[in-house]
Design a protein around this nucleic acid. Structure first.
Lengths: 368, 368
DNA sequence: CTGAAAGCGCTTACAG
DNA sequence: CTGAAAGCGCTTACAG
């Protein structure tokens, strides 16, 4: 008894199928269906026959075969570190939205890779660079120096918010120092003097630049830097919340700060929660400023005054720079283009900041 | 004068390079480096020589060449419709996080495709299905019936929250009707009677199931369905906000509802904003319930009582079902597996719901 | 245990 | 204007 024939899905049509159906060779079909350069050299009626055959056979050029000969997959990779919570955050969401939009515009696919930790997983980058992508965008605010040295050589890279300058890699960033400066100047202009800063991860470029802007703004109006208003935390929302909570616990009975400048919107969200828990009203009792202008900044009540980084634009630009690099891979090197590419930022005033209360508030007792 | 030789990036090493370096043929190298089945048949010391050669040459198997012969790219696609705002929302973020995690576990790449509108762009699905992906997950709460008919045939699909049952496509969904029922029962248990529902897009399965659960819960305790507490909107946050705003404007001076059940967290967020603007406190004056338990539910202040759909789990499961389908593409059909796959949901009580105020509130006058 | 051959589906010179 | 040949880098039978 012969083995039962399984109901196979019919194979997709190939160029030779189309050629046969049109009474023509495979590469004539190739020329009219896929070839940009040579298609004009085919006679008009053969051309028409081929087009018809392709339509009835529902011919689709096989992407892997084309990639093999063209050395071009028409897809770009995006690598992001997930961090502790193993989740994409709203910062990444914005950036990725921009990348996807630009990729689609340039008819490229986008494949996403996630790492848990740059140091531990940097070698995995090599396994992505095996022809499946033509180039890679590193969403790299957490990138370590060590990991940066392990980048594969056959694949072009572009970095976004790179934590270390990578050799031969264009970095797309924004003027975070200036953004922090503007935010703190804005708070000062509203009448605030005792301005707390809850920081991002110490040592990360993003965090340090915000700290620098905070300090410069204070100095610019002669407000001394107060160590007890400087609260180290991380960019994770939960850490920001915990840091402020600990601070309030420790300083119960002392004067409350006028305002808090948080290193990102997630931290600001965490602070809003703690303040609500403490029975403090924002902005009546205390003002809050964030950074990034992610989704979170608009879904808090009150909405957050924040510093807008044009994250989608930046993602879009990263794609364009990368595509340029892919196309000129063997040609003039990219040293001609600017590096880093620095985007301007913008203060976005919303409801979470107002003038300070006439009578200074006292830090209330929190339940442990 | 000869043309200047551009400093070419050296080609990546191939199997024949490795073979040559090890004094052996390319397919011996193939057997030990890439072949699972045949690698044991190579002598131990040849094997070692090959491994060494591969290491010094930094050999990486070319993904496109392997894909061409194996008919397997080891990557899955994810298609999501972006809608009006052209942005990934937090629902998609959760699902995608789960998909990325599961893909990585199964050593698959994930490539993302975005559509603006299923009806207009459904034919673009075909262009993704050209060998670059082995299967596709449709994030399909908005999928139209027409678009569903246009799916390519050579590629396996799995749907997530499909708005229409697709022939031969497993759908991963959750028990939304029950979730809505539980939410409204919970509100009733807190003492609420006048419970508003701000709906999702009428006609979408997700919206209709929530409406059904809302009605069933009211009926279960003999509360009559009140047409003026039933507010049609869409799943877009801005529409939810606008719908509630219009309602408050129209009903100024009348009694405020005790509670609002919103069809998703985004709508709930919009409602929080409008209520804050109207000077109403949540939950003191009015309680709010959401749906989905996305990031937004935890970044509002107060945090949202909501119905948790296990979106990451669902994304993960979609990957697993899809992989099964890819592997048995020519074998037994998938009719054996359950369809739809329905996940349970769970009420998550948070700060946005409390008992109703002792004295009923009146709808305040809003500034136009 | 190892290698020569054929082929996956396409494209790029090269002939005619 | 059109086709036969070679090759992209790999794998899968098939010989030896």
């Amino acid at each position: 008894m012969p083995p039962a024939i399984s109901p196979k899905v019919p194979r997709a049509a190939t160029l030779v199928d189309v050629g046969r159906a049109a009474g023509v060779s495979a590469m004539a079909a190739s020329a009219v269906l896929n070839g940009a350069r040579t298609s004009s050299r085919i006679a008009e009626d053969t051309r028409k026959r081929i087009l018809e055959a392709a339509a009835t056979l529902r011919y689709r050029p096989n992407a892997t075969a084309r990639a093999l000969v063209n050395r071009r997959m028409n897809t770009i990779g995006v690598a992001a570190a997930l961090g502790e919570e193993s989740e994409l955050n709203s910062y990444a969401l914005e950036v990725i939205t921009g990348i996807l939009a630009a990729s689609a515009t340039h008819r490229q696919s986008t494949t996403m890779f996630t790492l848990h930790d740059w140091d531990r997983d940097a070698t995995r980058l090599h396994s992505w660079c095996d022809g499946r992508i033509d180039g890679l965008i590193l969403i790299a605010p957490m990138l370590s120096k060590e990991a940066g040295k392990l980048l594969p050589v056959h694949t072009p890279f572009v970095a976004l918010h790179a934590n270390h300058q990578l050799p031969n890699v264009v970095n797309v960033e924004s003027d975070e120092e200036h953004g922090a400066y503007e935010m703190v100047r804005f708070l000062i202009a509203q009448g605030h003097r005792r301005i707390m800063h809850v920081t991002g991860d110490r040592g990360l470029t993003g965090a340090e630049r915000r700290i620098a802007g905070y300090k410069r703004a204070l100095a610019s109006v002669g407000i001394p830097f107060a160590k007890n208003l400087f609260v180290p935390a991380t960019f994770a929302s939960a850490d920001g919340r915990a840091a402020l909570r600990a601070w309030l616990l420790k300083h119960a009975g002392e004067p409350l700060p006028d305002a808090i400048f948080c290193a990102n919107d997630g931290i600001a969200t965490g602070c809003l929660e703690v303040l609500a828990e403490a029975g403090l009203r924002v902005p009546d009792d205390i003002s809050i400023g964030g950074f990034d202008d992610t989704l979170a900044a608009r879904t808090t009540v009150p909405q957050l005054t924040t510093v807008r980084q044009p994250l989608r634009e930046m993602g879009r630009r990263a794609v364009e720079v990368l595509l340029g690099k892919i196309e000129h891979q063997n040609g003039a090197d990219a040293s001609a283009s600017e590096n880093p590419i620095v985007f301007p930022v913008e203060l976005v005033p919303r409801a979470s900041v107002s003038a300070p209360p006439v009578v200074s508030r006292i830090v209330p007792k929190l339940r442990q």
